[in-house]
């Protein structure tokens, strides 16, 4: 019973259900093969696909913990990919490691700047987060297109390709990066007091201020972290497809990221948050995408299927739903309706 009450019970149950479903439709779903010293298999594939979403989700979790939201992550991904591809394309030797690292650094620096901008609007000027980040969400893709001149920039650079499609110790580099960032974020919030203070600021801003917490810096920081995380995700995405596509990169990822956060048990109103929950949420979403393919549901129905899963998950997590429907306490419902 106590396990049943754990905040990750429902997402985990759906995750397991999806995996089981996959077994019936693709026989060697769980088989992981070694090929050229690299691991291959459906599970690895899910992890690879989930990497950008995990990265964006981790940043989003911290933002949401403060009671905010960051709609601009998709645009930031596009900007990051666009700038790195542009710079690498301009390099004399696109295969030079130093040049590529430099390009990546510059791209991430720009993302950091965008995060500073978002954080400034929210924490200093005091604009509602959803509105403040809406600005960059709209303008960011324009900025990315400005950088690429409205074209899709193709790059052929072996070192750059490693980020999104390479392997290290038989594991995909992108997955390693995502896991590393998630772990760093976990340590940052657990081993320092960042987690406690973020929860306090998100849970009750007025009380936090009077307790001496200076929320401005904290709030600012989380938007910077979110933008840098999105920037890294953008690099992985563009490296994987070996090009910068300002329209496709990170399209609608903000919604998936928010979804991952909520599936992971973090309330959109701020306060208590769960990074592990977000990672599970991100993996769950990608498992769903893969399942849709392997089960043979037409691609057109992907969104439909996603909607169903979202509904099931949210209802499963809703205490009100459990109370009303699963326990069948009819008198309450009946009298409520009479009252209304």
């Amino acid at each position: 019973m106590t396990f049943h009450k754990h905040h990750l019970f429902w997402p985990f149950a759906v995750f397991v259900l999806l995996l089981v479903l996959n077994i019936f439709f693709s026989n060697n779903f769980f088989s992981i093969t070694v090929h050229d010293g690299h691991l291959y298999g459906s599970l690895i594939d899910i992890a690879r696909r989930a990497a950008p979403l995990i990265l964006v989700g981790v940043g989003m979790t911290l933002v949401i913990a403060t009671g905010g939201i960051d709609l601009s992550v998709g645009s930031v991904m596009a900007v990051s990919g666009a700038l790195s591809c542009l710079l690498i394309g301009d390099l004399g030797d696109p295969d030079g490691v130093a040049g590529v690292l430099g390009a990546i650094a510059v791209a991430l620096l720009l993302c950091l700047g965008l995060g500073v901008w978002n954080g400034f609007l929210v924490s200093v000027i005091g604009i509602q987060p959803i509105v403040a980040t809406l600005i960059l969400m709209v303008a960011g893709r324009g900025l990315a297109q400005l950088i690429t001149g409205g074209q899709i920039l193709n790059v052929t650079s072996a070192p750059y390709r490693v980020i999104g499609a390479g392997y290290f110790l038989a594991l995909p580099v992108s997955v390693l990066i995502a896991v590393a960032v998630a772990i760093v974020a976990g340590l940052l919030t657990r081993r320092t007091a960042l987690g406690l203070l973020l929860q306090s600021v998100g849970g009750s801003p007025a009380a936090s201020r009077l307790a001496g917490i200076q929320a401005r810096g904290l709030t600012w920081l989380v938007y910077v972290i979110a933008a840098v995380c999105a920037g890294i995700a953008g690099l992985i995405y563009s490296s994987n497809v070996a090009s910068a596509d300002s329209n496709a990169a990170g399209n609608l990822i903000e919604l998936d990221a928010i979804l991952a956060v909520v599936i992971g048990g973090t309330a959109l109103t701020g306060g208590r948050f769960s990074l592990s929950g977000t990672v599970l949420g991100a993996v769950l979403i990608e498992t769903l995408n893969v399942t849709i393919l392997s089960v043979g549901i037409p691609v057109e129905a992907t969104l439909l299927f996603k909607a169903v899963v979202v509904v099931v998950l949210c209802l499963g997590q809703s205490p009100a739903f459990r109370e009303r429907v699963l326990r069948r306490r009819t008198p309450v419902v009946a009298t409520k309706e009479v009252a209304a």
């Binding site: 306090s200 849970g203 208590r272």
Partner: peptide, 16 residues
């Protein structure tokens, strides 16, 4: 509204 943070534990509130 300006004192305790309801969603935090007693311990967290006390050391805040």
């Amino acid at each position: 509204t300006e004192g305790v943070v309801g969603d935090l534990s007693v311990r967290d509130n006390v050391i805040l």
